[in-house]
């Protein structure tokens, strides 16, 4: 009895130790990158010897960096605008239909999440090469939309789970058509999930590197692509500054999305 208790307390100690280790491992990059970004040094170094905001000023002073950031934001915004309606509509269809086709549609739509991004990137690259869509903003938007739809789909489906579809039928019996029933009855109730999924779509595009690496170039270069190139050529702390800003932005959006999904009652 006593031995059992001791062993279990040892086990729980080990388990919490492991949990803490995992958490540290997950947040470590943040604790390294953010201080590095405030380094006064010419090179990426940790820990920084002196603090300075110079690399942030460097970023905002460089037209190359700001243009890339602007391109990334535009692409993320457009991706969000495309992927959200597509994903929500797909989730709605899959949720309401009981046909075998809807299960197949679900699998196909989730495919970009299962196939390695590098494979997706190569595939799109060859298709775009044929139709001349490489290095275009529209091309990247379409590719990012494809990658973002699974996130929207999952989030919206979880929002629809537990939603009583009889409500839509009730609305129809009361005199509104199906679209109005969705807009007036269903959408307000899954609003949180829809907003969360839009934010996920936005962030997924903003962070995306692999596909952008293949498809974007020159003036259509996204921020992560430029960072990747910069990392290879000249290692300076501007990248750490950008990373820090991206981390803050993603955290803020992610938290907002979590609040959005939680609110759904």
């Amino acid at each position: 009895m006593r031995r059992g208790r001791e062993r279990s307390s040892l086990a729980s100690l080990l388990l919490s130790g492991l949990g803490i280790a995992v958490l540290i491992f997950l947040v470590m990059p943040i604790f390294i990158v953010v201080p590095m970004s405030f380094s006064a040094s010419r090179f990426l170094s940790f820990p920084p010897t002196a603090l300075s905001p110079r690399w942030y000023l460097e970023f905002f002073g460089s037209p190359e960096w700001t243009r890339a950031a602007w391109v990334s934001l535009q692409i993320a915004f457009a991706t969000c605008l495309l992927a959200t309606p597509i994903g929500v509509a797909a989730a709605y269809g899959i949720h309401t239909s009981s046909s075998r086709f809807s299960r197949a549609a679900y699998t196909v739509l989730m495919m970009p999440l299962m196939v390695p991004h590098i494979i997706v990137a190569i595939g799109i690259f060859f298709i775009y090469a044929r139709i001349g869509a490489n290095n275009t903003v529209v091309g990247i938007i379409l590719a990012h939309t494809m990658l973002a739809v699974p996130f929207v789909l999952i989030t919206s489906l979880s929002g629809l789970q537990g939603f009583d579809m009889a409500q839509e039928r009730a609305a129809q019996s009361l005199g509104v058509n199906r679209l109005e029933a969705f807009l007036k009855v269903t959408a307000p109730q899954i609003k949180g999930s829809i907003i969360a999924s839009a934010l996920f779509a936005f962030v997924s595009s903003l962070d995306e590197v692999v596909v952008s690496l293949f498809l974007s170039g020159g003036p259509s270069s996204t921020l992560p692509k430029r960072m990747f190139v910069a990392l290879r050529d000249e290692v300076d702390p501007t990248i750490a500054a950008i990373s820090s800003m991206l981390i803050i932005a993603s955290l803020a959006i992610g938290l907002a999305a979590m609040v959005g999904t939680r609110k759904r009652a």
Binding site: D164, A170, S173, V176, R178
Partner: peptide, 14 residues
């Protein structure tokens, strides 16, 4: 259904 003008009470109330 929305043009039939029928009042419906649902099992789940909806």
């Amino acid at each position: 259904p929305h043009r039939r003008g029928i009042g419906i009470v649902f099992q789940s109330y909806a």
